[in-house]
Amino acid sequence: MMTESVQDVGGRATRIVRSGRGRPLLWLHDTTGNRWTQGHEALVRRHEVIAPSLPGFDDSTTLGQIDRTEDVGFWLLDLWDALGLERPVLLGCGLGGWIAADFAARYPERLGRLVLVDAYGLQVDGALAADEFALTPPMLRPLVFAEPEASLAREWLPDAQPPERVESTLHARVAAARLAWQFPYCPKLRGRLARAKVPALILWGAQDRLVPTAHAHAYAASLPDARVVVLPGAGHYPWLETPDRFAEEVERFLG
C-alpha cells in the first residue's frame, strides 16, 4: 500500500512516498518532480520503494542554500539518518541520477547497489544534453519520448499543464533549474567515479534524445563495476514508457 508522509530531514520538511516490502530502494526523481508512476509500482513487488521529494521541488521557496548536487548529497546524509537507511539500493533518474552518481563517488560504503537511469551528470564531448529549459513541451516531446504522439507523452508533458498542476510544475522547474540550468553536469564527476566501488546498472532509453546514450557508455567506462542496458521503445523516461521492461532489468540486476 502506498503511503505518503512529510518528515523532517535535516531541518527540511520532506515529502516521502513509499510502497512495497523488501529491500529498501531509494528513488531519486528527475527534473519533473516527485510523481509516483507505473515504474515505481512495478518495483514494489520485491522492494520497499522510497521516493522522497528532492529539496525545493515541492516548494521552491525552501531551496535556501541548495546550489549544486553536493548540497543535495549532504541532505541525503540527513535522509540516511532520518530513515535509518543501511546500504539501500540507490536509483536515480535524470537529474536524480546525477545526484546519485555524485553521492556514490563520495559515500560508496553507504550504498548496496546503484542504478542510474538516463542520468545527467557527465560532460561528454559532442553529446551535450539538449536544453530542457529552452524547449517548449511540443519541442521536448520528440526528444524525451520514443512515442511523442502517444497519450502518455501528451499527458506527462502537455502543451499547457492542467490548472491543478500549474503551481507544482512551476516549483519543480525552479528547483530543477537551480541544479541543472544549461549545463547539467559537473566536469569533475567523471574523474571521481572510480571511487564509486558499488555494483552499478546503467539503464538508458534507446531513443533518449535529451541525454544521448553516449552518456550511458561514458558512465559505464568510468564506474569500476557497471553494465549498460539500453531499452528499446523508450526515451528519457523508460520507467514511464516501458515500465515492465524497466522493472525486469532492475530486478535482474538486484538479483
Binding site: L135, L170, H171
Partner: peptide, 18 residues
C-alpha cells in the same frame, strides 16, 4: 518569442508568475 525564453524558472517568483 518562445514562452520558455520569456519566463525561465525562478525569473519571477512562482506566486507572481501565477
Amino acid at each position: 518569442n518562445r514562452e520558455t525564453f520569456n519566463s525561465p524558472p525562478g525569473h519571477s517568483s512562482v506566486q507572481s508568475t501565477l
